[in-house]
Design a protein around this nucleic acid. Structure first.
Lengths: 194, 194
DNA sequence: GTCTATAATTAGATAGAC
DNA sequence: GTCTATCTAATTATAGAC
């Protein structure tokens, strides 16, 4: 079908955009570079997506669809009634996701503080993630929720989105399976006690 | 003195570059914008710094001079022999620094994974910081050091470098003094126990 | 030392062939 | 649906006036 080919091409472009933008930043990558990585020409990007900004939004939608799917799976896989183990597993799953998708933090940090893209990202995707976090952590003091949210996010993902610097500094590859496990264990031990 | 004026102008430019790059990224800000923020013209940037890349390095030097100074002060202010309190105070100081200099994390995340600027940053500044951290944490298992380093870095600073998104999501301003204290307390309670 | 003017390059977006 | 060619604007770096 024509539609299938269309969708396949669009996904190729969106994926190329997501990874290229995560590596070099929105302003650091050209639409020509994205097109080359997707194996198409620059003109085709304008055909499928009206502008670079629209392509960026499609890349964000794609990234957060991945995040939503991972969160669903993580929750579905938990039928453990022990609340401590549940919280521990939640931390571990965030670390594992961060290692599988090191583009996440980079993509979000690339969105500046005052940009229109920032507002769009908050309202379109981040708020949903944050609400879910709030619902899952009703035991926390209400005033602590935003702090714990950002502590968890930063602590679980930063090492993976800076993996090459970490490798240069320490000699270990944080993306290696045993190091991912170690990161998950250390962070779970730190954040989930008694 | 001519030299004093020269140095003052150079610092004006470097500070403008640091903050502009931290806000919009290296590729997201033009040398004209930096010049305008420094109150000079674009041509003067090329006179004082040969290229945008050299100006970026000067901005990095300026940022890490600030970090070194803060670390010195934090250590000098600690004459508490209780090792637990020392570790707790270290975490608190990192949070406070992150709130005073939200540009730090943004500037470092902006440096991509494979760029030449990344290698330069690691060898010129990050390695020194990392070595200091290693020396201060000899009690930790050696294999845990890189993980704890990135956990601390991400957990202490991410909320401040995403302050406007945090404000939109949660309603609290993480840069407000009482929230900085709260972040410091929560993180210290989490990371420093028994 | 600082500014103005400009050269050379590259970007995103558009138009039209196939 | 995809590609080639081109327009317009913005970028960094340079040259030269003051």
């Amino acid at each position: 079908m024509r539609t299938e080919q269309r969708d396949a091409t669009r996904e190729q472009i969106v994926r190329a955009a997501l990874f290229a933008i995560s590596e070099s930043g929105y302003d650091g990558v050209s639409t020509r570079t994205i097109a080359a990585r997707a194996g198409v020409t620059q003109g085709l990007l304008t055909y499928h997506f009206k502008s670079k900004d629209v392509l960026w939004r499609a890349a964000a939608d794609y990234l957060f669809a991945t995040i939503d799917e991972a969160l669903e799976l993580a929750i579905a896989g938990l039928d453990n009634p022990n609340p401590k183990d549940v919280r521990r597993e939640t931390v571990r799953q965030m670390v594992i996701f961060g290692s599988k998708h090191p583009e996440t933090m980079r993509f979000m940090m690339d969105v500046g503080e005052t940009e229109s893209r920032g507002d769009w990202l908050v309202e379109t995707h981040l708020r949903r993630i944050y609400q879910r976090f709030c619902a899952d952590n009703t035991d926390l003091p209400k005033a602590d929720i935003p702090h714990v949210f950002y502590i968890l996010t930063g602590a679980s993902m930063m090492i993976f989105s800076n993996s090459s610097k970490c490798r240069q500094l320490s000699g270990i590859d944080p993306l290696a399976p045993e190091e991912v496990q170690r990161h998950a264990d250390i962070l779970a031990d730190l954040l989930v006690r008694d």
